[in-house]
Design a protein around this nucleic acid. Structure first.
Lengths: 328, 328
DNA sequence: ATTATATATGGAATCGATTACACAACCATA
DNA sequence: TATGGTTGTGTAATCGATTCCATATATAAT
C-alpha cells in the first residue's frame, strides 16, 4: 500500500502539502500538478482509518434494522442511501433480528466505529435503550417509534388504523375483526390496536374477544389468525378483517379464499403497508401507504442536519395515504 | 471520550497491559480485575479506527449491490449478514443504482475503508471492473456473475431457463413467447435467453421475433412487453410466455388478465426468482427458486475462508428448483 | 530601504490503539 | 549458588493521516 509519505517523497514535498492538496487543493499550481501526477500514477488511496482516527469523522452512518429482508426495511434503507450517498456517506448496516439486547449492543458498536450518526428502526422501546442512545452522544434519529429525548419520525399509526375502520364502516361493515401484534411494539402493536378499538367505540360497534387475534408479522401468522377468528366466531362471523400489516392481511386472505369465502362480498380485508404484493394479488388489497422510502429520506436529511448542528428533540409525523382497492 | 490511556492511568498500569487484557485477557488475576472494573465504570469503548489503522483489519465487509430495494438483494444481504454477524463482522452497504462506473468507484472506496473483503453483485461485466478488483488485492467474491479471476457463485441461468421451457413443452406448449432483458447483463440477459432459444431449437419449435420482447426488470415493463407481444402476433398468439424475472412475469399476467385471457388456459406464464409475490398472486406463478439467501450465505462463507487463506479462483454453481404452480 | 502582509511550504505533535522487545521477579533444577 | 525457564508488566515504535505553528519567500505599502 502506498501512503501519503510515499507520495510526498515521490513528489518531493512534505506530507503536509500532500494532505493539503488532496483536501482543499491549497498549493501552488506547480506543486499541485506534481502531486496529482504521482497520485494518479500510483493509484494512491488515502487510508480512511487514519483519517478517521485523526478527524473523529468516518463518513459512515449506522443503520440499525429489526430485520433486513422486509420490504419496509429495504425501502427505508433505499431512501436513506439515496440521500446520504449524495453527500458521500456510506451505510453500515446492522440487523437486530428483533432482539432487544442487540439494539443496544449495536449502538455501542457503531459508536466504537466512529460512525457520524445513527438511524434506528426500533421495535422495542425501553429505558436501557434510550440511556444507551443518550450515552453515545451521537446524532441520532429514530424512525417508526417515538423515542423520548430522540428526534423521531413516526408514522401516524393511530389515525391510519382509525381511518381504515372509518372506511370499513362507510362500506357498511359493522362486524370488524382484528389481527394485531404484541404490545412491546408501541407503534404497530399498541397504537394501531388503539385506533381500531377507539374507532369501533366511536361508532358504538361491539368489540369481541373472538374477533381479535395476535400474529407475528408473518404471512403464515395472518393465515393462522384468520383461521382462529373464523373458528372462534361460529355464531356470528365478522364481515371484515383489519390486519395491522399487509403480510398478515395477505395470509388472512389466503385462508378465507381456501375456505370458500368471497372477498370482499363475504368478508372484506384491509391491511397496512402498501406492499408491492398488495397491489398485485387478487383481489387487490386495500391498505395504507406509509411512504417508507420518503420516511427514510427524511430521516437521513434530519440526521445530516443534526450532524451539522445539534438540535433539540423534534418529532415528525409522516403522512400516510389510504389506498382503497378491491378487497373491501 | 475515554481512551485506553485513561483506563491505564485509572487502573495504574500501562496501556500495553490494558490492550492485552482486552484482547487475550493475558495478565494476572489482580490486574485483570482492576482493569475490567475501570472499563465497566467508565463505559470505555475502544476506538476501532485506531485499531484498524494499526492492525489493517476493520471487521467490516463491503457489499456492492445493483439496487438495494429488491427482494433478491435483500435476501442475499440477509444471508450474508447472518453468516458474517456470527463472526462479529458488519456490512458496509453500497448501491450502484445499476451504474457501472459506481461499481468501480465503490470498490476503491471500500478499499480505502480497509474493509476485510468485498462481495459484489455485478450486473455489468467489463475489463475495467476486473482490473479494479485485481488491483484492490482484497478477498473478493462475485455473486450472480462469473467474473474472470474472481471466485464466483453463479446461478445456473442457462439450465434454469432451459428447464422452464422443458416444463412448458411437457405441458403441451409449442408457441412460447419470451420477455428478457438487455445483454449487458451476461447472466439474466444472455444466459437465460440462450437457454430459451436453444431449448426451443432442441424441440424444433419456431422462434419468432414477434414473440420476444425486452424489459428492464420492472413490473411495468413486463406489462408493456406482454402488450407488445400480444399486439404484434395477431395472427398467431403464443400459448405461453416465459419472463426471465418474476416481476416482469407478474406485469405480463396483469396485462393478460386485463385483456380477458385466462391464465393458464389461454396463455400460461412462468418466471424466475420465486418472489414472495409469485406464491401469493392468483393464479400462483410458476417460477424458479434460486435460493438467494443461501447464495448470500455461501458467498459470505467463501469470503471468510478467503480472508483466512488466499485461494485460487473457484466457481460455484448454485442449485435451483423449479416450482410448478397454477400459472401453467 | 524598510516594514508589513500575503502566500506557500515544512516540522513535528497528535489521534488511540497494537506489538516487538526488554526486563524484573519468581521458582525450579543441577 | 549459579543457571535457566516462566510469568507479568512496561517502554517505545508504529500505523497513516491531519493540523498547529513556524518559517521562507514574494509582493505591497510606507
Amino acid at each position: 500500500m502506498t501512503t501519503i509519505n510515499d507520495i510526498a517523497k515521490m513528489a518531493n514535498v512534505s506530507r503536509t502539502t500532500v494532505s493539503r492538496v488532496l483536501n482543499n487543493g491549497y498549493a501552488s499550481e506547480d506543486v499541485r500538478k506534481r502531486i496529482m501526477r504521482v497520485v494518479e500514477e500510483t493509484g494512491y488511496i488515502p487510508s480512511l482509518s487514519a483519517k478517521s482516527l485523526r478527524t473523529k469523522k468516518s463518513g459512515v452512518i449506522g443503520v440499525i434494522l429489526p430485520k433486513i429482508s422486509t420490504e419496509t426495511a429495504s425501502r427505508v434503507v433505499s431512501g436513506i442511501n439515496e440521500v446520504v450517498a449524495k453527500k458521500d456517506f456510506q451505510i453500515l448496516l446492522t440487523d437486530t433480528e428483533l432482539d432487544k439486547q442487540k439494539e443496544i449492543d449495536y449502538i455501542r458498536l457503531l459508536q466504537s466505529r466512529h460512525v457520524d450518526g445513527i438511524i434506528l428502526l426500533a421495535t422495542n422501546v425501553n429505558k436501557q435503550l434510550t440511556d444507551t442512545i443518550e450515552a453515545a452522544g451521537l446524532p441520532f434519529i429514530s424512525l417508526g417509534q417515538d423515542l423520548p429525548g430522540v428526534t423521531s419520525i413516526v408514522y401516524d399509526d393511530y389515525h391510519a388504523a382509525s381511518d381504515v375502520i372509518n372506511m370499513l364502516v362507510s362500506h357498511n361493515h359493522q362486524k370488524i375483526a382484528f389481527i394485531g401484534v404484541g404490545e412491546e411494539d408501541p407503534s404497530v402493536g399498541k397504537l394501531r390496536r388503539m385506533g381500531y378499538l377507539d374507532t369501533l367505540t366511536k361508532y358504538n360497534l361491539s368489540i369481541k374477544e373472538e374477533w381479535m387475534a395476535e400474529g407475528d408479522f408473518s404471512i403464515e401468522s395472518g393465515y393462522e389468525c384468520a383461521k382462529k377468528i373464523i373458528k372462534n366466531s361460529e355464531g356470528e362471523l365478522p364481515s371484515a378483517i383489519f390486519a395491522v400489516t399487509d403480510r398478515m392481511a395477505i395470509g388472512a386472505m389466503e385462508y378465507l379464499r381456501e375456505q370458500g369465502f368471497n372477498i370482499p362480498d363475504d368478508i372484506a380485508v384491509a391491511g397496512i403497508g402498501a406492499s408491492t404484493m398488495s397491489k398485485h394479488i387478487s383481489p387487490s388489497l386495500t391498505t395504507v401507504d406509509y411512504f417508507n422510502k420518503e420516511a427514510g429520506e427524511k430521516a437521513a436529511q434530519l440526521l445530516l442536519a443534526q450532524m451539522k448542528k445539534k438540535k433539540e428533540k423534534e418529532k415528525f409525523i409522516q403522512t400516510y395515504r389510504l389506498i382503497i382497492r378491491d378487497s373491501v
